[in-house]
Design a protein around this nucleic acid. Structure first.
Length: 298
DNA sequence: GGCCAGGTGTGTT
DNA sequence: AACACACATGGC
């Protein structure tokens, strides 16, 4: 485990940041625990990064690290914009230091196309399977083999539905393949959405097979800096219904969308991520508690 | 072994 | 616009 962790060559200040929390919050899926930190890729670059208090140590360029982990986001001010209610306050306290990172758009899009009706752990498995099979191996000297996420053009050329199903994509395989072809063929320009309005960028993403409201919002939030984008999945749906609609029956998806678009403010995407991670962590805690309880029985 | 998972596409009222 | 339903796979 500790073998092959490179001597971190660079340090950079990272106040108001929790690396492990950020990487474990379900916005990115390929980072692996390594040495005292994590190993992964940022685009084509193999990266090792570890946190020691308010400092990050890494073998990569500080500018690359700083941009990817969004260390420039004014996190304290962002959290101040959250609405003042009990659930939000608990999530904010629990997620102190969690940042919305800047992922490469294609790998974010592709990963979330594979995410529907999948648990977080399984999304990570699929990401690694696709990287191993179609991605470029990269590594630092003496380090473990890491794989960059294959570009859309690479999947369009080398993958087919069968090989993607072998990566455990199931029925999502054809969607990823068709989307890769649309982007590789220039029918949809992922770069162009960065300069569009939120609404236009969302509409453009919705043209892609396997991309609905939820996945489009994930891409806008995690790859396009649209910090207001508010993905609503089963977890967030439950949080909203239970905490902001008093568990009332018959609340429609449309009502949830309209409520969340305004109530959580200009950094709604951040609020959403805090609520999401908090809710998932609470369940894990409950499950471990229940497990411990059941194993206490004779 | 049934239930659930960071949903989407399709077809029907 | 709202709803029902199918869709693969793995963890618990």
């Amino acid at each position: 485990m500790k073998a092959n962790a490179p001597a971190p060559e660079v340090s950079l200040a990272a106040p108001e940041f929790d690396l492990a929390l950020t990487l474990g919050s379900g916005q990115v899926f390929h980072w692996l625990p390594h040495g005292r930190g994590f190993a992964g890729t940022i685009g084509q670059t193999p990266v090792y990064v570890e946190q020691c208090g308010g400092v990050l140590r890494t073998n990569a360029a500080p500018a690359l690290i700083s941009r990817y982990f969004a260390l420039d986001h004014p996190l304290r001010e962002i959290c101040r914009t959250f609405p003042d209610d009990v659930r939000m306050e608990n999530a904010r306290a629990f997620c102190h230091g969690l940042r919305i990172i800047r992922q490469p758009a294609w790998e974010c899009l592709a990963t979330f196309i594979t995410s529907s009706m999948k648990q977080v752990a399984h999304i990570a498995q699929i990401s690694h399977a696709i990287r191993r099979r179609f991605g470029t191996p990269v590594h630092w000297p003496g380090g473990p083999r890491l794989f960059a996420y294959p570009a859309a053009a690479r999947l369009a050329e080398y993958a087919d539905e069968r090989s993607l199903r072998e990566c455990a994509l199931g029925y999502r395989a054809i969607n990823l393949l068709k989307t890769a072809r649309l982007i590789a063929g220039g029918k949809v320009d992922l770069e162009a959405i960065h300069t569009m309005s939120d609404a236009d960028a969302r509409a453009e993403l919705l043209r892609l097979p396997g991309v609905g409201e939820k996945v489009a919002n994930c891409v806008l939030l995690f790859a396009c800096e649209r910090v207001r984008a508010f993905p609503i999945d089963v977890w967030i749906g439950r949080v909203l219904r239970e905490n902001y609609f008093a568990g009332k029956a018959g609340v429609t998806d449309r009502e949830l969308r309209e409520f969340s678009a305004t109530y959580f403010g200009e950094f709604g995407g951040y609020a959403q991520q805090y609520l999401f991670h908090h809710a998932r962590s609470l369940r894990q805690r409950r499950q471990r508690g229940a497990q411990r309880h059941s194993t206490e029985e004779p």
